[in-house]
Nucleic acid binder design. Sequence first.
DNA 1: TTGAAAGCGCTAACAG
DNA 2: CTGTTAGCGCTTTCAA
Lengths: 313, 313
Amino acid sequence: MQKVPAARIREAIEQTGYVPNQQAGQLASGNSRIVAALIPNVGHSIFAETIQGLTEGLHGSGHELLLLSTGYSMEREEAQLRALTGWAPGAIIVTGRHHSPGALRMLRDAQAAGTPVVEIWDHPTNRADSEGFAQIGFDHVAAGRTMARHLIDKGHVSLAYIDSGVGEDFRAHERGQGFMAEAKAQGVRVKVLRASTGDAFDAGREMVPLLLAASRTPITAVAFANDHLACGALMEATSRGVQIPGQLALLGFGDFPIGRQLQPSLSTVRPPTADIGHVAAKAVLQSVTKGTEPTSRSLPCQLIGRDSTGTTR
Amino acid sequence: MQKVPAARIREAIEQTGYVPNQQAGQLASGNSRIVAALIPNVGHSIFAETIQGLTEGLHGSGHELLLLSTGYSMEREEAQLRALTGWAPGAIIVTGRHHSPGALRMLRDAQAAGTPVVEIWDHPTNRADSEGFAQIGFDHVAAGRTMARHLIDKGHVSLAYIDSGVGEDFRAHERGQGFMAEAKAQGVRVKVLRASTGDAFDAGREMVPLLLAASRTPITAVAFANDHLACGALMEATSRGVQIPGQLALLGFGDFPIGRQLQPSLSTVRPPTADIGHVAAKAVLQSVTKGTEPTSRSLPCQLIGRDSTGTTR
DNA sequence: TTGAAAGCGCTAACAG
DNA sequence: CTGTTAGCGCTTTCAA
């Protein structure tokens, strides 16, 4: 054999359609090129852009995204992490900073073993419950405060927050806490209600009579854990002839496409969904190649004032 | 060593948190427990239930779902299949029966090598373009025919079909063909328009003036490639004071939750989304264990008549 | 520089 | 039936 064998080999390889066996390679090298992402609900629109961002961010890096849907269940999350262990993923991405003790242990072990772990959609807090994992997301408490402030700025003095009916949607609950804290700090009345589970639009609709039936100080502005709840309420209120925002101002969260379309259009908060995916992918890749631990990153939310909280903005 | 070592070993295993290395096992055994699913858009609500169905169907089988988002691009699909080859998936699930020549070759090779391949969301046709892979889905042409028939039954004689703007959404195009064929067969006027890409609600809205501006025989009923387009059109028409269904009847496809909520509510066709996932998972598992090729299965769609096509039903 | 050899952690096929 | 051994297809290390 003489010169240029590499080129010929490559040629032969392409003609044969050869693709190296990843299992063998990973077994030998000890590190896999799988990035596992555990998402509460892969089908939910709020995570769609994050998944898209992850996909794009990983694209061309030779890593594959292994998507797992936890169904907002810490138990399932733990089971999936356990199964994952055998796959020796190159990196693990989980949603939020709340995990079962077992899951936590596995994540810590993974990190100790040099597998980057990042928690997305959450934000480093002062509390000690972030177990030292990198977090890429935003401050849900602050988002809740922003929501309250927006309504208070519009002159409302009797507010409500409709929390998600999904018990383990911790981030929605945190926004509620922030909302409440801000309202109280500003000396404004505030009430927290919890939506039912099931179809989110219907759950939002169901809240309307409760909101209207309020006591002598009627609620004049409501924030919701997500846009689906808010849209349901908006449609129900409209069909009951309630003036929006005059009689009742409505504020959603998530900036789902539908909110822009309704009449009146829904004011909302736009979380950095796509960015979370992008940044997390990049953080993980860098961590894998440089061998450093991934770094946390806090991204901004944006309040989008539309019709449902008044046009004065 | 004497008796009951198995139990003690198991105990020790559980205490240590031992999980077998899948890479090694698969390398040794030659078959992996990965089921790869290539979906046009994992974030799109229409596939959400299918993914859920796949997840549930695979649950407890020891197989993991490797989800890949092709972005409705045959090119990306081929690239992902190529990357997959190295993972030696235990089974491959692709969406639809349209693939690039390269992708087709890889799928055929995989099947020849004993890896079950199933095409979901599509249906065996008489044409030779189903390359011999098992198909689990429904007949899109028939669905289109059903849509036309529904509108014709309501007395409409001048119809339109708004096709998806996504070029490689072959299944939407096929529904359009079925719609057209049925309309022609029944001697009814029919026009096919194509929505723009981008936000689907907006794309639907944009169609309304085109539909209203029709020539001397005005269009009185429209079917859409999906519910998002239909909802956009419904909202736009309503805000323009168009009577629905009196002046214009609207029929969607997909049964997205929002369609039920609008006023008037949207008539639609409900495809067997969750079943497709379930059945595909089971087919693949059976094929893997029994070593037989997976079998095709045609599942039923359901027409859901609501307000937007008249309440006479 | 290029080439041979030793495993990675299992499974499967063998011998005891 | 249990215990041992030879690889799976690569990467990595070490000698040539």
